[in-house]
């Protein structure tokens, strides 16, 4: 019996990609590309940032910490936006893969948020003179980290996975209010953290020789993030099927 035969194919359009067999096939083809592009771009960008890119006139070589800190920070917020999107798909459309994906996004997002906080601290000590300051930017990113941790704990806290997923989705959506706070904290209030160098509306205030490696790492990290989430969701789909099969066998055994 193959994986695709085990599940009835739903006829509804929206649930076309919800068929686990189809998801496993499509994601299996996609995953090597995501992983390869992610690793290649990140490696080139980080190598460029570490060696060829110039030192900053004030920061010296500590500016190189930016090439890991800023992509991690962008992904921390971007990952949370994805978690929220998956939560909406789960709550409104009852998309069967959305719950699984949400549960797999939050650990990866928490990982990138931890990288952002740790590398920010390692930059702050030599540059600002402090590992940590309770300004609006840093506090709101720490809140983001706790939202991720809360989601990780909540989706696994119920005996009934459906209820855990429901509770987690609600928590994730409530936490969305934190995303604009993170983004605009450096404009709404005075903070120790600097404002954005790269904005959608204005020209970047960063030398091109620093901007290019940063963008390479950022795009590479985004592919890497996607690869990690897809790989974990594939594993989760297969694990769910294993549980289903074992349960069916056990019931057959009881019936016999």
């Amino acid at each position: 019996m193959s994986a695709s035969q085990a599940f009835p194919v739903p006829s509804r359009n929206l649930h076309r990609f919800a068929n686990p067999g189809r998801f496993l096939r499509l994601s299996g083809r996609l995953l090597p590309w995501l992983a390869t592009i992610g690793i290649a771009l990140s490696a080139v960008g980080l190598g460029w940032g570490l060696t060829l890119s110039p030192a900053d006139w004030q920061q010296g070589d500590a500016v190189r910490i930016m090439y890991v800190h800023v992509p991690a920070a962008w992904l921390a917020s971007f990952g949370y936006a994805n978690l929220a999107a998956a939560s909406i798909a789960a709550l409104v459309w009852r998309h069967p893969l959305a719950d699984l994906a949400a549960a797999e996004i939050s650990p990866v997002g928490a990982g990138f948020t931890a990288i952002c906080l740790a590398t920010g601290s390692l930059w702050g000590k030599p540059m600002w003179g402090a590992w940590w300051v309770w300004d609006a930017r840093m506090t709101s990113v720490l809140v983001l980290f706790f939202l991720y941790l809360g989601h990780i704990a909540l989706v696994r806290a119920f005996d009934d996975p459906q209820r855990g997923a429901r509770a987690g989705a609600i928590l994730a959506l409530v936490g969305v209010v934190n995303l604009p706070i993170i983004k605009f904290s450096v404009e709404w209030w005075n903070t120790l953290h600097q404002g954005a160098s790269i904005t959608l509306t204005g020209a970047p205030t960063m030398a091109p020789a620093m901007l290019w490696p940063l963008l390479l790492v950022a795009i590479g990290a985004m592919f890497g993030f996607a690869a990690l989430v897809v790989a974990r969701t594939r594993a989760a789909v297969m694990e769910r099927r294993i549980r289903g099969l074992l349960l069916a066998r056990a019931q057959e055994g009881e019936a016999a």
Binding site: D61, A62, L122, P126
Partner: peptide, 15 residues
């Protein structure tokens, strides 16, 4: 390279 321990620690944690 200035601030080498901080740079090494940052990249190491990330990797």
């Amino acid at each position: 390279m200035t601030h080498l321990p901080f740079i090494v620690a940052s990249y190491a944690i990330t990797l």
